[in-house]
Design a protein around this nucleic acid. Structure first.
Lengths: 148, 148
DNA sequence: CTGAAAAGTCAATATGGTTGACGTAAATCT
DNA sequence: AGATTTACGTCAACCATATTGACTTTTCAG
């Protein structure tokens, strides 16, 4: 657990920088732990997450959105396929392309991972109220929109 | 630049998970680029940031808050000291401990790095209003408070 | 004086990423 | 039809960053 005394207060102009760091850590901690039990890492999570949200998309789409080299993707993706979590099928329109989808076990694991994150968010949103949730989203969208 | 069409909308219950990911990326991109020019990485940034905010703290404090092994810290810290960005002085009370502080050049670099992050935040806060800023902080503190 | 603590350092190792080169199958162009 | 391009897979070399383990020096505390 983080030493709360080292967290910045509302009056601290530097605070948001630390807040983002700690929030991100808190947010990834539980899924990381679940993944680690099966020898998986954060990239596996991102693959599962992307495939869950965009079933039927191609490997190249995954590559583009993850921003890694195909060699870096290859290992983890192969692993997930070998584990039966991700399924690969040729694109009916273009035989070169491979379309990705989750098996039922893959969907189950993905749901477990995302669930822990949604629970954390829901708890905080419930504490702070719906207006805070909407404001938070707006700010986060503003930040995300200037992503490189 | 991230494909904005792949960013989630306000109606998307999964959205916050992606928002955090992209916001974090956007947030670290510029400092990372500045650091890369001098052959430095994110850990150097965290060191500079911590030392800037907690001048005079010991190496062990830095170790504890960064959550890395002392061997992992050793290289980057040594580098920063060699570059004249971080200064080391023995603790007046305990001769074993080394206290860390920034040189003026170190403070300058740290300010530049943090500045880009504050600018990004200020821009978004200015767009969304002060109420949104306060709400955002509350939510982020809620998340950060459950950090492991 | 002895033992414990703070810090520095070397070494071996693991992981996760990179780029480069190459192969294969399928689509597309001329 | 034949040539070129695209999508994907894979091997290899490499590099950065982290780990654990072991050891040393200095200094504090009993």
């Amino acid at each position: 657990m983080v030493d709360v005394n080292l967290l910045p207060g509302d009056d601290d102009p530097f605070a948001p920088i630390e807040l983002i760091f700690y929030a991100f850590r808190a947010f990834t901690a539980k899924p990381d732990a679940i993944l680690a039990e099966r020898g998986l890492a954060r990239l596996h999570h991102r693959i599962l997450y992307f495939v869950a949200r965009h079933p039927g998309r191609r490997v190249s789409d995954l590559l583009a959105i993850l921003g890694v080299s195909k060699q870096a993707l290859h290992g983890p993706l192969k692993q997930l396929v070998a584990m039966g979590l991700v399924e690969v099928s040729p694109d009916p329109g273009d035989g070169r392309a491979r379309c990705l989808s989750l098996s039922s076990e893959g969907a189950e694991l993905e749901a477990r991972l995302s669930q822990t994150q949604r629970e954390l968010l829901e708890r905080v949103f419930a504490e702070q109220g719906e207006a805070a949730e909407l404001a938070w989203r707006k700010v986060m969208r503003g930040l995300a929109g200037s992503a490189p």
